[in-house]
């Protein structure tokens, strides 16, 4: 087989696999630009026109924002942003304590933290519900934010990173008269920016994707977050497919816009960044 043909075949195979992966996404995007009644038109029987947004309309986007999707996005950004900000502080402090301080029961507590992120959320949903309802937080934003702030995986990410930072930095700063909070802020945080970004994105996306818990904790549906809001586009008798797809596209787009500029740090952070002396 001549090399050029061989190469062509390989590319063809790659393209075919890529097509399979991209197709659902592409179909979602183009369907959001079609009128609702035209969505399934070219699929049965299938014609290539099914792969092109034609007829093209922005009706779906106009409709979802008319139905209050803007507020839903704002709600979710508020919840996810609060969780990220508080989560970075709480989990960073916890990771710092585990990495630098000796205290009785440290390894046991660390063990529990590690186990906590292996538990599926469904397993703790009901006990958590009763705690939150005792606190009177049902239908309150606190019910969404507070339980998600402490995150075992984020604590562990910080712990692992801080543990790798040479202890000499801590001791040098200590001798200079800096207290442990000052050392965290002036030395450890600047060194751990990739970890902060990884953990922050993780917390953000965790909230962004939350569906079951907001559904349970916000039964009145006065304050809707994005996943719950999206489900509302599908009612019992009719489904506004084009609006559903439009909402899905927006839902996917926002974390992507966040991730792309920070991707470099995200990968670096998860891979455990090295420290340059």
């Amino acid at each position: 087989m001549p090399p050029i043909l061989r190469k062509a075949l390989i590319y063809l195979a790659i393209a075919a696999v890529a097509f399979v992966f991209v197709l659902p996404l592409w179909w979602a995007i183009l369907s959001s630009f079609r009128p609702n009644e035209a969505i399934f038109r070219d699929l049965f029987p299938f014609t290539p026109r099914a792969l092109w947004p034609e007829p093209f309309t922005l009706d779906a986007y106009v409709a979802i924002f008319e139905r209050g999707f803007g507020t839903i996005i704002a709600n979710t950004l508020l919840v996810a942003g609060l969780t990220t900000a508080l989560g970075l502080i709480v989990n960073g402090l916890a990771g710092y304590a585990f990495a630098l301080f000796e205290f009785p029961g440290k390894s046991a507590v660390l063990g529990i933290v590690v186990v906590s992120f292996m538990l599926p959320f469904e397993a703790i949903a009901m006990p958590l519900y009763s705690v939150v309802s005792q606190l009177g937080w049902i239908d309150h934003v606190a019910a969404l934010v507070v339980p998600s702030v402490a995150n075992g995986l984020a604590v562990f990410l910080f712990y692992q990173f801080f543990q790798q930072v040479p202890k000499d930095y801590y001791e040098a700063a200590r001798l200079e008269g800096a207290g442990w909070l000052r050392i965290l802020w002036s030395v450890y945080v600047p060194l751990s920016l990739p970890t902060c970004i990884s953990a922050g994105l993780m917390l953000f996306i965790f909230q962004w994707e939350a569906f079951l818990w907001p559904l349970l904790a916000m039964p009145a549906q006065q304050f809707k977050v994005i996943q719950v809001g999206m489900a509302a586009f599908q009612d019992q008798y009719t489904t506004a497919w084009n609006q559903l797809f439009g909402a899905a596209v927006i839902t996917a787009l926002i974390p992507m816009l966040l991730l792309i500029p920070l991707q470099r740090y995200y990968v670096q952070g998860l891979a455990g960044s090295g420290i340059k002396g």
Partner: peptide, 28 residues
Amino acid sequence: PAKRGVAMVFQSYALFPHMTVRQNIGFG
């Protein structure tokens, strides 16, 4: 340690990598 009136030079130097020389020296 900070109030003993001692200053230590570490084997690893322990210079803060994200700070300039000026910031390192001036940290304390």
